[in-house]
Amino acid sequence: MIERIGGIIISAGRHTYRMLSLLSQTCFWIAVGPFKRKFPKPEGVFSQMVFAGVDSLIIAFFVALFTGIVIAMQSAYQLSRFGANIYVAPMVSIGLARELGPVLTSLVVAGRVGAAIAAELGTMKVTEQIEALETMALNPVRFLVVPRFLALVVMLPCLVVFSDIIGIFGGFLVGVFNLHLNPYRYITFSFQFMLWKDVWTGLVKSAVFAMVISMIGCYMGLNTKGGAEGVGKSTTSSVVTSFILIILFDCILTGIFYFAKQ
């Protein structure tokens, strides 16, 4: 029993170490690449950005819209007892900007983009394509990981801003059509109580989540073993691991922002 727990801890430690080394290699290529004429081609990064960002707009739209509607209804349930219905507006906007926008969007993107990255790189690994890159003196980290990493780190915060706006609109629908609040007052209240900090902490979170998603996806993909079954396994574990780590980092970052204020 102890042996097994020990084994799990050791393997978790080894994975963490190797993942950090992948992250450091990625950062190395981002920092050094431009000087060695070895930066990924803009078209490559661009097509990844389209895949990670633009193609995620529809799913992000629906998730954010319904989340906004749900928060508005849930908070109205409590606030209506105090006759403070108008406070639904800041409730929705701040809740989304600080927490639900970044986290839910990241979870969606982890399921869609992270899984796709793991599956694509995993397939490349089991069909010798990664090895082919290496024999052509093309570093797989520079060639495959860096564009995906950059694309996600840029696009996820953009997606989060989009989700925040859509979510606030969802709350607005409930506020105006169900709670019969004045639309103009609803909008003013939405932004009146919102601080810059609410927005940028959300964006910092989403950038960190983007790193988590791209790193886990690439790591799982590049370490795929054993044919089609292996690709399936690494895709699944990339999604599961990303989900856990996103929530974990959310907790850590919220803690930091919370205690830093005092």
Binding site: E120, T123, M124, T127, E128, Q129, E131, A132, E134, T135, M136, A137
Partner: peptide
């Protein structure tokens, strides 16, 4: 240095290993 050596060799893989994208 390894990259410089690698540029002088070519490898033909069993599965061809073409990039399918």
């Amino acid at each position: 240095e390894m990259d410089r050596v690698k540029k002088k060799i070519g490898m033909c893989f069993q599965s061809a290993a073409l990039f399918d994208s």
